[in-house]
Amino acid sequence: MFKKILLAVDLNDTAGALRAAQKGGELAKMCGAELHVTTVLPEMGFNLVGSAFGPEFSKRVRDETYEALQAWASEALAGAPEPHIHATQGTVYDQIIRLADRIDADVIVVGAHRPELRDYLVGPNAARVVRHANQAVLVIR
């Protein structure tokens, strides 16, 4: 069914990330698919803010996030195919879609938080991924 699966998780939402990982891992195992896992760090903001920290700070944060995602995935995806880990930085939905296109994913598995007053049906990033992705998108709640 699917050959490459991109699982996009928010490590700050541990419960939601775990639900998405369980379903994404099961899907990868069932399909014998290659599994990619990503999390996206937000931009540093205004150029003034980003320049105050410098490029070495940004790289260190990405490296630490990569290591944290790798450790998290080894526990959350036990029994699933060995995942390829990706930690990127930028606009969340844009980075997920770009990575899915770059790795030629067949499906994106993304979690969505419970809706609040400002949201309708799914979280804003998940909704944008659904609307703009070239792949099928499985939204896990």
Rank of each mutant, 00 (worst) to 15 (best):
P124Y: 07
Y120E: 10
Q70T: 11
Y93M: 07
L18T: 09
G79T: 08
V129S: 03
A21H: 01
R60M: 10
A112T: 15
P42R: 11
H86D: 09
G32V: 08
K29M: 06
E67L: 11
K59I: 04
Q95C: 15
V9A: 05
L6W: 07
D101S: 10
P115K: 15
P42W: 07
R62H: 09
I97K: 01
A87H: 05
K59R: 14
P81M: 08
A52V: 03
D104H: 08
H132Y: 13
A105C: 14
G45C: 03
A112V: 07
A127W: 10
S51H: 04
L138N: 03
M1E: 07
N12H: 05
I103W: 14
G54P: 04
A80M: 11
L117T: 13
G79P: 07
E64G: 03
T65H: 12
G50A: 10
A136S: 11
A21R: 01
E82L: 11
V129H: 07
I103N: 05
R131D: 11
F2D: 10
G111P: 03
L27Y: 12
Q70K: 14
T14E: 15
Q70I: 00
V139P: 06
A33E: 01
K3F: 09
K59M: 04
V130E: 09
E34M: 03
A87T: 09
A15R: 13
R19D: 06
I85C: 05
V40S: 10
A105V: 07
R118I: 15
L11N: 11
T39P: 13
L48R: 02
A21P: 00
R141F: 11
N125Y: 05
A15N: 10
R19F: 03
S74I: 00
S51C: 04
H84C: 04
E116L: 06
M1F: 07
C31Q: 09
E82V: 10
A112Q: 06
S58P: 00
E26D: 11
L117P: 04
E26Y: 06
A52W: 02
I103R: 13
H86L: 05
Q22S: 04
A105S: 15
D119N: 13
P115N: 14
P83S: 03
D106H: 08
N134P: 00
I103T: 13
D10R: 00
L117I: 12
G50I: 01
R141A: 13
G16N: 12
L35I: 11
M1R: 12
T14Y: 01
L27V: 05
G32E: 06
I85W: 10
I108E: 05
L121C: 00
A15W: 01
P42G: 09
A17C: 09
G90S: 09
N12S: 05
A80D: 06
D104A: 14
R98N: 13
A136I: 02
R62S: 14
A126S: 09
A112N: 07
R128L: 12
A76G: 01
